[in-house]
Amino acid sequence: MDSKYEEFLKQQQNIAREVCDSTPLVSERQALICLKTEYMGDEVFIAKIEGLLKKYKYIRRTRPDGNCFFRAFAYSYLEYLITNQAAYHEFRKLAESSKDRLAELGFQRFTLEDFHETFMDVITRLNPTSPGEKEPGQLQSELHRIMNEQGYSDYVVVYLRLIVSGKLQEDAEFYQNFIEGNYTIEEFCHQEVEPMYKESDHIHIIALCKALRVGVRVEYLDRGGSSTANTHDFPEGLDPMVYLIYKPGHYDILYPK
């Protein structure tokens, strides 16, 4: 290995570390209008942001570490659940039973347990009907604290990754059509889904939404043809509970008006 290359590697690692240190895992809510300053002078983007401002009020940013879709999804959906008791309890049951299904698919039980335990712990802490009778505001700040604490936040991300991997393998025949090249679904899961920091694509989103029966609306802010951001609902036909914005390479959370 020559020293120039090693230098390059070191540089890469330093940049990654700087990004990590300077951004919280999940930010406070910010007025959506702040996006305009980010894209000042870029007519295509500004026009699309104007369109989004009619529908959305706030944005919440996630750390651009490759886990952003999973973290944004988790935060936004849990935020929905703390004000929707019925949905909360239904989800809790689903989450509880998910471990055995994954184990049946061949995931090692004890690694699975680790992540499932923490995942359930997070859900339990956010129970809107717990005897402690926490105010919605308290639950909100608890959620924010949890999702910014790496020890919880990353465990939640891993568990969601495993759920996606499980769903892809369960319905391998269907998802195989989405995969380019000679990958099998299993290989794809091992390389692109299960490892941390690997970015998410449509296939991850579809699988997660279907597995958890959660509607997600994504607004695509890109250079694509139309003058408004492209809106896409996953899975089609389900009312969205989670709203995300996609800017090339990154997902953040949106708040409708």
Partner: peptide
């Protein structure tokens, strides 16, 4: 071996 670096996942283990 790729699982020792970029394809490592926290769901893997010493055994795997």
């Amino acid at each position: 071996l790729s699982i020792l670096t970029e394809d490592w996942s926290p769901a893997l283990s010493v055994q795997s």
